[in-house]
Write a protein that binds this DNA or RNA. Structure first.
Lengths: 136, 136
DNA sequence: CTAAAAGTTAAAGCCAGCTTTAAGTCAAGC
DNA sequence: GCTTGACTTAAAGCTGGCTTTAACTTTTAG
């Protein structure tokens, strides 16, 4: 299979496939006249990568658990550890989003004179002091 | 107030304040000897910006609704529109995260022979075909 | 045989929201 | 008056996950 066909089947660009290879997520396939030829199971691998990506794993993390993944290897402890860490992240994200939702609804339904009053009335100001600077 | 003090009170870097100004979110204050001097209510504005940012609004969106925000202006229809759009986004994010959580738990608790089997067993493969290419 | 389509590479570009850097100017304490 | 710290600017850098570009080669259809 040529790269374009693989890409079409996985519904992504050929450049993404090359990128995965460069990042070490896909083994470099053998070539015919300089062009990549993929075995058919490469599609599964690509789909698995996309799936993990959709689950919020970074390419680095995916590379980590793929590197220990043989044909029919069992779901290993390394993967389980990564997955439970990711699960915690997802749960945090959910909690945070629920708070956000409540805040937005609160402000949407309020009849305060101004946004600033709203924010104060919802006791958000104290929160504000603790925000940001997260990058340091 | 000098920029450093404002930054300290808002708990962010002076560079962020300058960035907000450059992006049109903060009015450029008058200067003494080339240096910015802020009125005390600038802090409220900065905190409001941060707050909105934490709620998931982009700086562009924040600029939009700040541009119609006077001292004690009522919570305007423009802001309401933006907020309800954002609310929908947040709700989508929650729904998506809940799915992710279920998937991760499913895989974590399964006893499949391999990840690939897991993914297939959880009927994820069909989903996979419809993923990505979102940037086009 | 030829032209177009698809493949190749390395390197640069994109997005947001800043931070960092470089090379200066200004303010405050002793 | 001098040092140190805070301020100024424009421009470049950072993160991640690719895409785009440019210049070129290979394959394929007619």
């Amino acid at each position: 299979m040529k790269i374009g066909q693989l890409a079409a089947r996985a519904n992504l660009n050929a450049s993404a496939i090359r990128y995965y290879e460069k990042m070490g997520l896909l083994p470099s396939p053998h070539r015919s006249g300089g062009q990549r030829r993929y075995p058919s199971d490469a599609l599964d691998r690509v789909l698995l990568i996309r799936f993990a990506g959709e689950m919020g794993f970074t390419l680095g993390e995916i590379k980590l658990f793929l590197s220990g993944l043989r044909d029919n290897a069992p779901v290993g402890p390394r993967w389980k550890k990564l997955a439970s860490r990711k699960l915690a992240e997802v749960e945090q994200n959910i909690a945070r989003s629920l708070k956000l939702k409540a805040l937005l609804q609160g402000i949407l339904h309020c009849h305060c004179a101004s946004l600033q009053v709203c924010v104060q009335r919802l006791s958000l100001s104290p929160n504000l002091r603790s925000l940001s600077r997260r990058t340091k």
